[in-house]
């Protein structure tokens, strides 16, 4: 059992935080992770910036552009994280688009993640069927959990397929949107949350996109195991020093 699977067994709603590596400055990565753990974060998603982040809204796009300008890339990130497991115990996931991983070499990337102690990957533009066919065995070889997304438009049949090949959690995208787009959840989302709950999946779900405060976190986790906060946190560290990360958790 890896750290993600262990964490999912805890009897609480999990708070997962996304941030863009290399932002606001290149060398903030490690201290953001350490401060997040101290503040009570359950899972951290470390965003590997990409020039063309298709699924992201303005906040994460801008942080990615800045991080790339700062000099962030796969190699720099791995170097920054090489001793991370001497100070941090919670699950760490790298979230990034597929092309930078492809250029690094998918096996080499997975191997590096394993060496450092990364527990899983979220790759929004690596389709489930391509993963299943070409990369699943590599991920297993390096003990990495791959996290898949589902959306309100995903059919029950496809959700069942995704459930069957998942071994961590399912990233449940709250609504038809890019990251950061919504402020509250409406009836449609509630109906979707219920629909997924009624499918009785074997894989726990963590809801992401559109969670920005206590209210949306609670709505999102009525049935789900936890919530992911990305854009709202990126905004917070844009405006506050890293030492103030704990203030962000007042809402949670």
């Amino acid at each position: 059992m890896n750290r993600i699977q262990q964490k999912l067994q805890e009897n609480k709603k999990l708070v997962s935080i996304y941030f863009t590596a290399g932002y606001p400055t290149l060398t903030d990565t490690k201290s953001i992770i350490e401060n997040l753990e101290k503040a009570g974060t359950d899972i951290i998603e470390i965003g590997l910036p990409f020039s063309d982040p298709l699924a992201d809204g303005p906040t994460i796009q801008e942080s990615s552009t800045k991080a790339l300008k700062n000099g962030m890339n796969s190699e720099v990130l791995f170097e920054q994280l090489k001793d991370i497991r001497s100070t941090v115990n919670i699950p760490l996931i790298i979230m990034g688009y597929f092309n930078p991983m492809l250029q690094y070499g998918v096996e080499e990337f997975c191997k590096k993640c394993n060496e450092i102690g990364i527990d899983g990957l979220i790759i929004p533009d690596l389709p489930v069927d391509v993963y299943d066919e070409a990369y699943k065995s590599l991920f297993e070889k390096y003990n990495l959990t791959n996290i898949f997304l589902i959306t309100p438009q995903t059919s029950d049949e496809r959700i069942r397929y995704i459930d069957s090949i998942s071994n961590g959690f399912i990233y449940m995208v709250s609504s038809a949107s890019v990251t950061g787009a919504k402020n509250t959840f409406g009836e449609q989302q509630k109906a979707y949350f219920e629909r997924i709950n009624n499918l009785n999946l074997k894989t726990p779900q963590i809801v992401g996109f559109g969670i920005s405060n206590k209210e949306t976190f609670e709505q999102a986790t009525t049935y789900a195991k936890g919530g992911i906060i990305g854009s709202a946190f990126v905004k917070h560290i844009t405006n506050h020093p890293i030492g103030k990360i704990k203030d962000f958790f007042i809402f949670a």
Partner: peptide, 11 residues
């Protein structure tokens, strides 16, 4: 070729 798209675009 192929379709390397986020799940949101799949449907």
């Amino acid at each position: 070729g192929g379709a390397y798209i986020p799940e949101m675009l799949y449907p």
